[in-house]
Amino acid sequence: MKTLKTTSFSIILSIFAVTIAVAQTTAPPKLDVPYVPTRQVVVDAMLDLAKVTNKDVVYDLGCGDGRIVITAAKKYGATGKGIDINPERIAEAKQNAKAADVTGRVEFEVGNMFETDFSKASVVTLYLLPSVNMKLRPKLLRELKPGTRIVSHAFDMGDWEPEKTIEVDGAKIYFWTVPEKK
């Protein structure tokens, strides 16, 4: 009888361990920022403030459903890349790009923005939290070429004074240009 109890307990323990392992591999990614889509009027103002053209490469860090990069491609003829840690958002962004007929101009990638190379960008857009902007700032200044434009919806970058701040439909938008390296 004791062997049966031990065997049953071992089986239950094994099932529990496998269940935990599967849950850990399929758990949603830890997000630094909740997903809140940028309203289209704000997207338009961000891209306008950055003076996006068909020569630009727009990177959206934490791209969500892809609307900023898609709008840059559709409205201005820019190319672009969206990075998001959430695979569901990337799948949605790819569907939205297909629906907008811009798949040849944009790409979307599941990735961590702190581990992604975005040095090819001429414009970087953000809608992150202040703490994430501050953590990201050294990487932006280190990796981006001088003259690259950075536009942030809602949140600044601490003591790095924006060159311009505008308000659109109740939302603040901040603009910086990456300075020459010292």
Rank of each mutant, 00 (worst) to 15 (best):
L47G: 05
T79I: 13
R137Q: 11
V58R: 01
D44F: 04
F114S: 09
L141A: 05
A100V: 08
M113V: 15
S122D: 01
P146K: 09
R89L: 15
A91G: 13
P162K: 06
I83N: 02
N86T: 13
A73F: 03
R105V: 00
D117G: 09
G62F: 05
G111A: 13
R39T: 12
K75V: 14
M134R: 10
Q40N: 13
G64M: 08
K51A: 14
D101V: 10
V69F: 02
A97Q: 02
E115S: 14
T165C: 00
A50C: 11
A154N: 14
S119G: 11
P146G: 07
K135M: 11
A78F: 00
V57E: 13
W160R: 06
G66S: 07
L61V: 07
I68H: 01
G147R: 04
A78L: 03
L31Y: 11
K30V: 13
K81S: 07
K164R: 14
A73Y: 01
H153R: 03
T38I: 13
I83S: 02
I68P: 02
E143Y: 06
A121R: 01
V52Q: 03
V57F: 14
S122I: 04
V102C: 07
V57I: 14
G104A: 12
D56M: 04
K98Q: 13
M157G: 05
K139L: 12
V110Y: 01
D48W: 03
K164S: 14
F118G: 04
W160E: 12
L136D: 02
I83P: 02
S122C: 05
R149L: 02
K30W: 09
K30F: 11
V42F: 02
S131K: 12
T116R: 09
I83Y: 03
V36G: 08
G111M: 11
K74G: 02
T165M: 08
P87F: 09
K94R: 14
K164G: 03
I68M: 05
V132N: 02
D159M: 09
M46Q: 10
D84G: 06
K98T: 14
V58Q: 01
A97Y: 04
A91K: 15
A45I: 11
L144Q: 02
G64W: 04
